[in-house]
Simulated assay, not measured.
Amino acid sequence: MAQDDPRGDVVVYWRPGCGFCAMLKARLGGLKDRVTWVNIWEDEEGAAFVRSVNDGNETVPTVVMDGIPHTNPSPVKVKERLARG
């Protein structure tokens, strides 16, 4: 997985049981379907990418917007990006 992930403009790296991930998904509402969701427990390449941008930690949600990774960004920031198309 690279920062310029071809799967979508906004990619969210997450894992089951993560409260911050669940909150982000809930706050995105209907916009959540415009996001590519990568479960790092099922995607080793995704997990490696998350570690590479978080000092070796699997900190989620890690959200890539316009090729730039953001660790646990505010749902408002992600919604604003999604609203731009």
Score class of each variant (00 low, 15 high):
residue 24 L to V: 07
residue 41 W to R: 12
residue 31 L to P: 01
residue 30 G to I: 03
residue 76 V to T: 15
residue 73 P to E: 06
residue 61 P to S: 06
residue 52 S to P: 08
residue 23 M to T: 09
residue 49 F to W: 02
residue 73 P to R: 11
residue 51 R to L: 09
residue 20 F to R: 05
residue 71 T to Y: 08
residue 32 K to W: 13
residue 37 W to V: 14
residue 55 D to I: 01
residue 30 G to S: 09
residue 51 R to W: 01
residue 76 V to H: 13
residue 34 R to P: 00
residue 67 G to V: 07
residue 70 H to M: 15
residue 58 E to K: 13
residue 52 S to I: 05
residue 41 W to C: 05
residue 47 A to H: 01
residue 74 S to K: 05
residue 52 S to V: 05
residue 24 L to G: 05
residue 77 K to I: 08
residue 41 W to H: 10
residue 43 D to A: 02
residue 27 R to Y: 01
residue 70 H to K: 15
residue 72 N to F: 09
residue 18 C to K: 00
residue 20 F to Q: 04
residue 31 L to H: 03
residue 26 A to D: 06
residue 59 T to Y: 10
residue 63 V to M: 08
residue 18 C to P: 00
residue 57 N to D: 14
residue 24 L to A: 06
residue 46 G to K: 00
residue 43 D to L: 00
residue 62 T to Y: 02
residue 44 E to I: 12
residue 45 E to R: 15
residue 72 N to V: 05
residue 22 A to R: 09
residue 48 A to V: 07
residue 40 I to S: 10
residue 66 D to Y: 13
residue 36 T to P: 08
residue 72 N to S: 11
residue 62 T to I: 05
residue 24 L to M: 14
residue 48 A to D: 13
residue 33 D to T: 11
residue 20 F to G: 03
residue 66 D to V: 11
residue 71 T to I: 14
residue 16 P to C: 07
residue 51 R to D: 10
residue 27 R to W: 01
residue 66 D to F: 11
residue 60 V to N: 07
residue 54 N to Q: 05
residue 41 W to I: 07
residue 15 R to L: 14
residue 55 D to V: 03
residue 34 R to C: 01
residue 73 P to H: 10
residue 42 E to L: 12
residue 67 G to E: 10
residue 45 E to T: 13
residue 40 I to M: 08
residue 70 H to Q: 15
residue 18 C to A: 00
residue 57 N to Y: 11
residue 65 M to G: 07
residue 19 G to A: 10
residue 66 D to N: 15
residue 35 V to D: 04
residue 71 T to G: 12
residue 37 W to F: 08
residue 16 P to M: 07
residue 30 G to T: 04
residue 54 N to C: 11
residue 23 M to G: 05
residue 29 G to E: 14
residue 62 T to Q: 01
residue 24 L to W: 00
residue 37 W to Q: 13
residue 58 E to L: 15
residue 29 G to N: 14
residue 15 R to N: 10
residue 55 D to P: 01
residue 72 N to G: 07
residue 72 N to R: 10
residue 27 R to A: 10
residue 53 V to E: 02
residue 61 P to W: 04
residue 47 A to K: 07
residue 61 P to V: 06
residue 38 V to S: 02
residue 17 G to R: 12
residue 72 N to D: 11
residue 65 M to S: 08
residue 28 L to A: 02
residue 70 H to G: 15
residue 35 V to Y: 01
residue 43 D to N: 06
residue 32 K to D: 13
residue 29 G to H: 14
residue 64 V to Y: 03
residue 48 A to M: 07
residue 77 K to N: 05
residue 28 L to E: 00
residue 65 M to N: 07
residue 61 P to E: 06
residue 39 N to W: 11
residue 77 K to W: 09
residue 38 V to I: 08
residue 66 D to C: 12
residue 63 V to W: 11
residue 54 N to H: 03
residue 35 V to M: 02
residue 54 N to V: 05
residue 46 G to V: 00
residue 76 V to I: 13
residue 47 A to V: 07
residue 34 R to L: 07
residue 77 K to Y: 11
residue 66 D to W: 13
residue 75 P to C: 04
residue 17 G to A: 12
residue 21 C to H: 04
residue 77 K to S: 12
residue 37 W to A: 14
residue 34 R to G: 02
residue 37 W to S: 13
residue 59 T to V: 08
residue 51 R to Q: 14
residue 35 V to C: 02
residue 51 R to V: 08
residue 24 L to S: 05
